[in-house]
Each structure stands twice: as C-alpha cells, then as structure tokens.
Design a binder for these strands. Structure first.
Length: 647
RNA sequence: GCCGAUGUAGCUCAGGGGUAGAGCGUUUCCUUGGUAAGGAAGAGGUCAGGGGUUCAAAUCCCCUCAUUGGCUCCA
C-alpha cells in the first residue's frame, strides 16, 4: 500500500500528499493565507474538522467564512466557547444543547438555581473573547459510551446523559478546548482564536427537547464573527431591519392599532390601513373574477353542529373561543374559525352536475381563532383575521389543472407586489405513518404527484416536507421572511378529501351516477393581516403607487392657492387618484418634508404659476422635483405608472 | 400557556422615595412663504391597573393587565 494519497480539489486539480495529511496541510501547501482562513473541510461530501487526518484518496473542499458550512462550524465552536465562558462564570450550571443556527448559535443552559444576571451579558462576551485570545485548540476524541456516561455522571449533567442514551456506542465523540469538554459530533474550527467578535443577542426560555411538559432551560442566542467589523455591520443590519418592522411603520403611517379594551390580537384598521386593505382586496377580486371565481358571503358565526360535522370541533373545540349560547333557546354557535364548512353548505344548496365543475367560491372571510397569548405578534399572528379564502370543488381529474391555476394566481399576486424572496413548501404524507391520513391511497398519490408536477412545471423554488401534510390532504405553502428573518406562511393551497366526505358533497357524473368532488382550499395572501404585515416590511412602507393610502399630497404654496388646490383635489379624485390637500399654515418646505416622511408617492405643488396655467409642479417621493405638467398630463402619467406595476 | 424583559403626554424617550420633563405632534396668534423642519404662546400625564411597605411611592415589594424576545402551538 502506498503511503501517498491523492486529493482532488473542487476545480478538478489533483494533488498528492502523505497519508494522514489534514485539510489544513493541503491549504498550507496552496497558500498560507488560505490556511489561515480555513474553518472546516468537506471530505467526500462530509463536513469534518480541518485538522482531522485524511487517510485515503478524497475529494476535498476547503471551507471558509464564505461558505455556509464554514460559518456554521465557526458558530458551533462559538457555542462551545460560550459554554466554557458560562461554566467559568457560573460554576455548577448544566448544559443542554448548543447548535449553530441560520444566523449564529445558541446554548440551552440549566442555571440550576444559580442566579443569572441577564443584564450583564457583556461579562459573558468578554470572558468568551478572553478565552478566544488563548487560541485554545479544539481536539476530537472518540469515547466509549460507558466512559461518556461516567464523565457526565461525575459532572451531574442529566441532559447530556439523556443525549448519550440515544447514541450508539462507537459513534460518540467528545470535543475539548481549553478547560471545556462537550459531547459533540463536531466538526470544529482549529482553535478559538478564529473568533474575534461575539454578541449575545437575546435570552429566552426554551423547553428541553422542545417538549412543553419538560423543564424550561435558559437559551442564550448569540453570533460571532472572524472580524470585529463584520459584527458591527451585522448589528447595523439588525438595526435597519427593526426600522422596517410593520408594527413600527403601521403606527407611524397610521395604518392600524390595537386596544386593550377591544382585546389583544384583535387589530383595529385605521382609515389609511383600511384603504390599503380595500385596494388589495379589489386587486385580488378582479384577478379572481378573471380566473372564474364566484364571490360568496357567509356569516361570522356558525352552528356548533357545522363544526362537529367538519371535524374541527373534535380537533380544536377545547382550544377555541367557546361556543356562544343563545339566551332562551338552547342553541350554540361558534365564531367561525374557517370558511370552508360554510362554503360546503353553499355547494350543497342545490344538486350539482359534472358540467358545473369546477365550482370556485371565494370570500374575504373573517375568522377567529384562539391563539395562545404568548403567540400573538403584531399583525402576523392575531386572533381575528380575514382570509382571502376560496374553495374549489372539482373532480379528481381536475385537481392538477386547478392546482396549477391556483399557483399561477399566487405567482401573479406575488409578482405584482414585488415579492421575490419566497420559497414554496410541498407538504406530503409521512410515509412511515400512513394511518394518520384519511382518504384513498390512490387519490393521495394522484394529488401528491399533481402538486409536485405543478411545482416543477412552474419552476418554483420548493422543498418537499414529508409528514407535513394536513390529515385531510397534501398542500403547497408559500413562505416568506419578515424583516427580522422570521419565516411566515402566506399563500397556501391544499387538497382536501375529508370535508367532501364529511359533508357528503356530491355531483352527478356523465355516467349519471353520484360522485364525490375534491375540494381545494386556497388563499394567495393567506390572511390580509399577515400579508399586509409582510408587505409593509418588504417595502418599508413605500407602498406601490396603486396601494399607497395617500397617492398624492397637494401642497399649496400659500393660503392664496387653497381654492386651486381644492379644485385639483376634486379633479384628481374623479380620476381615481386619492390623496389630500395640506392646508396647514406652514411653509412649502415643511409640507414637502412631512409628505416625504409619510412616504407619499407624489407631491403636487401649486402656487401662483400653476394656478394661472392649470398645471401642477410634481415631486416624486425619494426622487425630488420632476417638473411641471398639465393636470390631465399628470393623471395620464400617474395611471401609466400604475399600469406598469400591475400588469 | 411557559421562561425573560418592558410599560412615564397622541408619538419617540429622559428622569427616579419628597408629589413630572424634552423633542415631535396638537391648539391659538404672527407670518403668505417655491421643493426635506419660519416664529411666539398655550393645552395635554392618577407615571398601565390594583394592593402593600413608608411620615411620604411614579420611584421599593407583590398581584393583575398589555406589549415584547424566545419556546410550545397554529384548522
């Protein structure tokens, strides 16, 4: 056997090394600078320590801060460093898990009764940096299960013991750096000195192993960087993100509010917010009309039996707003948590023929769900919200084409609103747990295949999640992130075999026999509340022209031109251009500033010259003065701009 | 629901055991001004609510409510 191995680099070049060479050796042979930046290595597709010897011919990719795996290795090591610092500052704590995450890392700590001062996170950061400067090497050690158990028994850490319990003997490794040893699969960076900047971002409670029946540990979220400058940039980015927060902008632009008296999680739409909402609704209504939907309307409450039939009562009855009882008759009604049972009853209002299908019922239906108080969040998680709901009743053969049309509609909506950064999630059955689902296997197979095919044909950026399907059918959800990087589901489209069954929906087929239709639930926005929240964060309050609550601000130079301004306001209103006249006794500079701050798309400045010539001096938000136009000319210009945006 | 934090004027926030402050906004007056803040005066707060400690509580302690960072949940 040769004691040489061949290493193939990503560019295809091959190099020869002594057996047992490490990725760091390889990097060093290329350049010292590269070696300094290598955080981990991908050996034959597996991410490993860059300091682990390579024993055979391999494909090797050196991972640096520019690679996601490089970052996560750094953050994983940083979690160990934080644990070391915490053990030094708070002897006697017990450790849960400490993984890297999308932006940084966390460690779950049981402070075991030791008082933890969450106001002095800086002390932990400083301790981490102090330990980092020691450039302590990370070392990897394979350890027997018995020895691992003995180590943590001695240490008295039941969390690690529980983790070890789930591992196979022979697959257990410990990593050590400085005075800290942790049960860990790795990999890690070569030494702590790579960590140059750390910031503990927040402290939160987290149940051990995500189980709400088990002990709650203290989770410290943090992030680290190889350069101080990058930390600074990251923190600035977070600050910027906070400025986009829909709760902040919603207040500033007077879009919505909450009232303790009305109740938590129950948004109140202010006039400007209501205008925005109405424009979005009209936009979708128009698109749905074209796509063959019929609008229906259903009440805000429904008899309890309706939800017993739908199955929702059994599943959610206890965790919902409780039934409303009538005073004299013994009747019970539920605030509607969904629109579909009502729509099923509309479908049933007359016999259906296969020639009627697909039937598409749309409704901006307001629903009420009892969300846990700790879950409420601005407009993204509320207890009363309006779904842009629709239910398509079709034959099994029509599922795919209907699904494709729904996806087209969602994509149209997203593109009109400038949502580019979204992912699609195809949620299918858990193959290991087929009993969880109702409906015929062959129907599921067809529906799942249809959804996947549609996702592929529409070239969606999608992931498949097994086990995420609803019990009644597979679904396709559209996910977006808010300003702070939290993921939310917006649009959704779901195939349902359950409700047609439960409500005994039927149609007469061409064979003159009764058949059961398939239902597709779909909502391109998801909910108006959540969609608008994300829209606000996406555009930072600079709404597309057609949605802006105030599209124009008419700014008279002085009181003398108020008549002309008011006349102009009426003319614009007649041309479907909405805004207001700023009649305050302020100078033009002040009026412009205020309109700019409120992000009004166009400012029409009118003074002596304009009043005489029948013109307006136009200023565009963020652009400045764009010159003078005749009134009609501005209206045409305006409507052309709108047309560019929504078609 | 759970762990942590926060709650002072419409908004953003400072203050802090001896009975409340700024800026913006708002109102009135002066000013009639041409592309991002003209000037002056005034109004506005049971310091979230309740209880306790104290001669004295907005300030310290307890409870409740709301908001908030997470966790769990999400038809």
């Amino acid at each position: 056997m040769s004691d040489q191995i061949t290493i193939t680099l990503p560019d295809g070049s091959k190099r020869s090394y002594n057996k047992g060479a490490t990725a760091l050796d390889v990097a060093m042979s290329i350049s010292e600078g590269l070696a300094r930046n290598v955080l981990a290595a991908k050996v034959n597709g597996e991410v490993r320590d860059s300091f682990r010897p390579i024993e055979e011919d391999s494909n090797l990719q050196l991972l640096t801060w520019n690679d996601d795996e490089g970052k996560s290795t750094m953050w994983h090591s940083s979690a160990h460093l934080m644990a070391e610092a915490l053990e030094a500052l708070y002897p006697g704590i017990k450790l849960g898990i400490g993984p890297p995450i999308e932006n940084g890392f966390y460690y779950d700590i049981d402070f075991n009764g030791i008082e933890f001062d969450s106001d002095n996170l800086e002390a932990i950061e400083n301790k981490m940096l102090e330990l980092a400067r020691e450039k302590n090497e990370f070392t990897r050690k394979e350890i027997s299960k018995a020895d691992a158990i003995a180590y943590y028994k001695e240490k008295g850490d039941e969390y690690k013991l529980e983790l070890i319990d789930g591992l196979d003997d022979g697959s257990i490794t410990f990593y050590n750096q400085g005075n800290f040893t942790d049960l860990c699969r790795g990999p890690h960076i070569p030494h702590t000195g790579y960590i140059k900047a750390v910031k503990i971002l927040n402290v939160a409670g987290a149940y051990w192993r995500g189980d709400e029946n088990r002990k709650q540990l203290t989770r410290l979220y943090a992030i680290s960087f190889p350069k101080q400058k990058e930390l600074k940039e990251h923190l600035e980015l977070l600050e910027q993100a906070k400025l986009r927060d829909h709760r902040k902008i919603g207040k500033e632009l007077e879009l919505f509010t909450f009232s303790e008296k009305v109740g938590k999680g129950l948004p109140l739409w202010l006039p400007k917010g209501a205008v925005l909402r109405e424009r979005l609704e009209n936009f979708l209504k128009k698109a749905q009309l074209k796509a063959g939907y019929d609008q229906v309307v259903s009440p805000h409450i429904g008899g309890k039996e309706l939800y017993v039939t739908s199955g929702h009562y059994a599943k959610y009855g206890e965790d919902s707003f409780q039934p409303i009882h009538t005073p004299s008759e013994d009747e019970e009604f539920l605030l509607k948590p969904m629109n579909c049972p009502h729509h099923c009853e509309i479908y049933k209002s007359k016999p259906r023929s296969y020639k009627d299908l697909p039937v598409r019922y749309a409704e901006f239906g307001t629903v009420y769900r009892y969300e846990q108080s700790g879950e409420l969040h601005g407009l993204t998680r509320v207890r009363g919200f309006t779904q842009d709901d629709a239910h398509i009743f079709c034959s099994q053969d029509q599922v795919k084409s209907e699904f494709a049309k729904v996806v087209d509609l969602v994509l149209y909506v997203f593109s009109a609103l400038g949502f580019e950064d979204f992912t699609a999630q195809v949620s299918l059955r858990d193959p290991n747990n087929p009993d969880k689902y109702i409906g015929k296997d062959e129907d599921w197979e067809k529906a799942e295949a249809a959804i996947k095919e549609v996702a592929e044909e529409k070239e969606l950026n999608f992931v498949i999640e097994y086990g995420e399907a609803a019990f009644y059918g597979p679904k396709l959800d559209f996910m977006v992130k808010d300003a702070l990087g939290r993921k939310w589901q917006l649009g959704t489209s779901q195939v349902d075999y359950s409700l047609p069954e439960r409500f005994e929906l039927e149609y007469i087929g061409s064979d003159n026999k009764k058949h059961r239709p398939v239902m597709i639930h779909r909502a391109p926005f998801g909910s108006m509340e959540r969609f608008i929240a994300i829209l606000i964060e996406n555009c930072a309050g600079d709404f597309p022209l057609w949605l802006a609550p105030d599209q124009i601000a008419i700014l008279p130079i002085s009181e003398k031109y108020h008549d002309y301004a008011k006349e102009l306001f009426v003319e614009m209103q007649e041309k479907d251009i909405r805004g207001f006249v700023d009649e305050r006794d302020e100078k033009i500079g002040k009026k412009i500033r205020d309109a700019e701050v409120k992000k009004t798309p166009f400012m029409l400045i009118v003074g002596e010259k304009e009043a005489e010539e029948g013109t307006v001096s136009v200023r565009q938000h963020g652009q400045g003065d764009i010159g003078s136009m005749k009134k009609d000319e501005f209206a045409r210009f305006f409507h052309n701009k709108v047309a560019e945006l929504i078609n």
